[in-house]
Design a protein around this nucleic acid. Structure first.
Lengths: 163, 163
DNA sequence: CTTGGAATGTCAACAAGGCTGACGTAATGT
DNA sequence: ACATTACGTCAGCCTTGTTGACATTCCAAG
């Protein structure tokens, strides 16, 4: 807080400022994943399962290709995770109606329950941080996050908001 | 930008807002690591090596225990990474003067050169995002990042600034 | 001076979750 | 008819995390 030079300077981008931003991202990401990670340990799932559940929950009926693009992993890697989720009855894979090659992904009741549990833990973490920082800081936070994405990622990110 | 409710509302913490923050962190972290990752592929190092180099560069002479606390991994995991960096002549491990059990870590010339290369790529990324977002957004960004850390992480984070 | 405990290093084994390459199958589009 | 697309799967590899066990070195307290 002592040297952020909020708005009065054009020379605020010193290497030290940037370095603090980099370290901030590193530490904050740890805090960000801590809560769901704690739930995940014990049940035999990891972050990869959490991410899949999150985005399937976010866009029910999403096909595999789209989920691959969002997660940014290979289909083999996603498939391993997805298979366990399907085998365990948390995710349902339905053959597409228009295009029968596609599989559309949905959470089952159990899947939705776990997703809710994970999501609530993470939202609680996020809510506490947002409350602490205040609405104006939050607006700035989101602006910078979006600016950090490359165009392709930003496209995916904004597409999630719009449906 | 359309629905952030900058400051005029107490009810800005809808689940949808929080969810967008969560997804924003996910996508932004990808953008954040993209530039150094690209340099690292080819040379046989990974993110773990980058992180070690970064924090040794930041606090030369740091002992192993402190680096372990910062990175949040086990000593066995760090040791494997550190071993390769030392063997490759990028990091030097000196026996402590006051306490000879401790090893103090320094970058060699080669280590500093690689760290600079990685760091510059990441700072360029960060600088572009900061420029795009503007100083006020950056101030907010940093406030939220800090609020997302648990007290222990925040302590480590702020200690880095103070030396 | 001896001894307990702390800091460090190392060996072994393992798991999660990335990756590539190759191949099969079904459905679609040309 | 044929190439392409979407998806699944097998096999194998890498990085980076984990635990447990154990040796060494050294400081500090008794």
């Amino acid at each position: 807080m002592s040297d952020t030079h909020t708005g009065e300077s054009l020379l605020f981008l010193t290497d030290e400022q940037l370095r603090q931003g980099i370290e901030g991202m590193f530490f904050a990401y740890r805090g960000f994943t801590a809560a769901p990670d704690q739930i995940l340990e014990g049940i035999s799932y990891g972050r990869a399962h959490h991410r899949a559940l999150h985005f399937i929950s976010r866009s029910p009926g999403m096909n595999v290709n789209r989920l691959l693009a969002i997660l940014g992993v290979t289909k083999q890697s996603l498939n391993r995770v997805l298979r366990t989720l399907i085998d365990d009855g948390l995710v349902e894979s339905r053959v597409g109606k228009a295009d029968k090659r596609e599989r559309h992904l949905y959470l089952t009741e159990d899947g939705a329950a776990l997703e809710t549990q994970l999501s609530e833990a993470q939202r609680a973490q996020m809510r506490a941080a947002y409350r602490k920082a205040g609405p104006e800081a939050v607006a700035g936070f989101r602006t910078v996050l979006e600016a950090m994405m490359d165009p392709e990622l930003r496209r995916l990110y904004t597409a999630l908001r719009e449906g």
